[in-house]
Design a protein around this nucleic acid. Structure first.
Length: 606
RNA sequence: GGGGACGUAGCUCAGUUGGUUAGAGCGCUGCCCUGUCACGGCAGAGGUCGCGGGUUCGAGCCCCGUCGUCCCCGCCA
């Protein structure tokens, strides 16, 4: 192959095939760089030595498919190219075959310059995929997938496939529906995850199951969300939470190792959901950034009164490292930008500049600075002894309505600001820059998610994870399940990497009475529960072992490992933000004949 | 459903306060060239300024609408 030849091959007569990457025509001497997925090799064509081959090379153009037979030659002194893996040798062509010509591609394959026009990249995806950068991503993806498959197989997991044509369950995300021809008016659904099937496999005694599973969700896209995606789905019997954690950490070590990253032996950090919200204002903290600090203790009731800060609500501060000194203009712009972002939500800056001008507040300003471990508290404009940007947010008196819906609203809003600012100053603090070592990757388990979340629109409690998630034993026995739903904790956990949710899982309910209780608490009658999940409730009655599992987004793992900022870089044929495949042009209308076969009619909505 | 950014040559982009015939680099075509490797030299082709409408003596530039791509919020058990 093109990328494999070295000086040890000198003297061998070989044939290589591939695409013309570049042609350098010097008249009687032509160089062709030949590319395949392993790399690039320089071919030399001399008019005197092999005139026929030279003549064909004159006609060759980028992306022509060629076959070259010739002798590998060590390049002479000064002719070697240290920038190429194969730069010590070249192939002296004796015979050249033009196997196929090619139109001039709409964008260059040979350049490493980024192509910003995503539309054209996706339309000509076969050419985009030919670029070394993407070739590299799919080699990586293959290695990672194989490492995970091998690890799980070595640990007694069985890979079992579950159906793609299955049953719609009107919970959670919208389903992609597939009409049945044989049963007019009836629809299959594509799975959002193999959730119920894998639980049934546990009931069937398969003990340890996994699947590299395609899943489908008909929801709006993001850079890290595609409508069809791949997850590493697994389930085991008789697990504790820590059993699952150990398995996942095991295959992630293997996967990262396959990608050339050796993670340290220590277990991943764990924190509860409540702790994550209090310290990071989000359920998927980015551990590369410093946490938030609650500064409430620094403010006496009198100080709150004077500074017009709402009593008993938290005063939160955080720092963004190494932002450097901001000019007065930059500070003003930042201030109005953030105030604008808050709107009238009852939050504001603590104006430390004002504090410094008033003798009485100086100790407070200094206490805050000390607690944040930063002497530049935002907008104070003096005594810069660190580069860190410190921000203190205070709740104004009066309670906007939104705080009532969500008791954690303030933490979440300030956590959002923390992330926004971290992003804004990413170039300065450099914490998101990859160094190619394990230090780039901050893993975290978030545990004890709330069992329920309040649905304001429908005025009811919904399952925060899914209705088969087991609550904490304490919360069942204490009666909280009935009396205080907002406080019930689930045996549900997320794995987070650099602020991206990689996966989510739980210990499941294996007792029918508990399951029935959960359905009741979700306001689902027995009849209703039976209509939706009857087959599963039946199965639960036949000796269901305790079980639990998790599912991790394979695409996201590969995306982060590849240092990519979009899933499109690691999915071969991805869709646009409007869920369109620009290459095959899908979705499309279908013929009346097809519709009639399916007993369907398309109606126009105004 | 909402907010934001972008759309000019095949690609990457520039285009001033609204003013002559819309530019650059790369790529492409032809010719020349025996040591290049982002080869070099000379010459050349290539544009419905996303689309539609409006304002204006005059629109790539201003206004309205629309389409597309990207990012974010909602949504994603």
């Amino acid at each position: 192959m093109c990328g494999a030849l070295r000086s040890t091959n000198a003297g061998e007569t070989i044939t290589i095939m591939g695409w013309v990457n570049r042609r350098r025509d010097h008249g009687n001497l032509i160089f062709l760089d030949v590319r395949d997925r392993t790399g690039i090799t320089q071919v030399v064509l001399d008019k005197e030595a092999s005139p026929a081959a030279h003549a064909k090379a004159e006609a060759a153009r980028p992306e022509y498919v060629i076959s070259v037979t010739g002798k590998v030659r060590e390049r002479g002194e000064g002719l070697k190219n240290p920038k190429m893996d194969t730069g010590d040798i070249e192939v002296v062509a004796q015979e050249l075959l033009l196997l196929n010509d090619a139109k001039t591609p709409p964008f260059p394959i040979a350049d490493d310059a980024p192509i910003t026009n995503e539309e054209i990249r996706l339309k000509y995806r076969y050419l985009d995929l030919r670029r070394p950068e993407l070739q590299k991503n799919f080699v990586l993806r293959h290695k990672v997938t194989r490492a995970i498959r091998d690890f799980l197989s070595d640990n007694e997991f069985l890979e079992i496939e579950t159906p793609l044509l299955t049953r719609s369950t009107p919970e959670g995300a919208r389903d992609y529906l597939v009409p049945s021809r044989v049963h007019p008016g009836h629809f299959y659904a594509l799975p959002q995850s193999p959730q119920i099937f894998k639980q049934i496999l546990m009931i069937s005694g398969f003990d340890r199951y996994f699947q590299i599973a395609r899943c489908f969700r008909d929801e709006d896209l993001r850079a890290d969300r595609q409508p069809d995606f791949t997850q590493i789905d697994l389930e085991t019997t008789f697990p504790q939470q820590k059993t699952i954690f150990k398995i996942v950490e095991g295959f992630l070590h293997a996967a990262f190792s396959a990608a050339g990253i050796e993670l340290g032996p220590e277990a991943f950090v764990q924190m509860t959901y409540d702790h994550a919200i209090a310290k990071y204002g989000i359920d998927k903290p980015d551990m590369r950034l410093p946490a938030m600090v609650d500064l409430s203790a620094e403010l006496t009731p009198e100080l709150r009164e004077t500074l017009k800060i709402a009593p008993s609500l938290p005063v939160l501060g955080f720092t963004i490292p190494r932002v450097g000194e901001l000019s007065g203009t930059a500070r003003k712009a930042l201030l109005s930008e953030i105030r604008g972002g808050f709107g009238d939500c009852g939050l504001d800056f603590l104006d430390v500049a004002r504090l410094r001008t008033n003798e009485a507040f100086v100790p407070l300003a200094e206490a805050i600075g000390a607690k944040l471990n930063a002497e530049q508290v935002v907008f104070c404009g003096e005594n810069f002894t660190t580069d860190d940007l410190a921000v203190v947010i205070t709740p104004k008196p009066g309670t906007p309505e939104m705080w009532n819906y969500d008791r954690l609203w303030i933490w979440k809003r300030v956590g959002q600001l923390r992330l926004d600012l971290a992003k804004k100053y990413a170039d300065k603090h450099g914490l998101f820059t990859q160094t190619g070592t394990a230090a780039d990757f901050k893993f975290l388990w978030v545990t004890d998610f709330p069992m329920y979340e309040w649905n304001e629109e429908h005025k009811r409690w919904d399952a925060a994870h899914h209705p088969f998630t087991s609550p904490h034993e304490d919360d069942i026995t204490s009666g909280r399940l009935v009396n205080d739903k907002g406080a019930v904790r689930a045996l549900a956990y997320d794995i987070v990497l650099n602020g991206t949710e990689l996966g989510s899982g739980s210990i499941r309910i294996h007792r029918k009475d508990v399951q029935a209780e959960i359905f009741r608490s979700l306001g689902m009658s027995d009849e209703e529960a039976h209509e939706r999940f009857g087959f599963f409730l039946d199965a639960l009655e036949y000796g269901t072992p305790p079980h639990g599992g998790i599912a991790l987004g394979l695409d996201r793992i590969v995306m982060i490992l590849a240092g990519a900022s979009s899933l499109r870089e690691v999915i071969a044929f991805p869709k646009t933000a409007k869920a369109i495949d620009l290459m095959v042009d899908a979705p499309t209308p279908v013929s009346d004949v097809q519709l009639r076969d399916l007993s369907l009619r398309v109606i126009k909505r105004s």
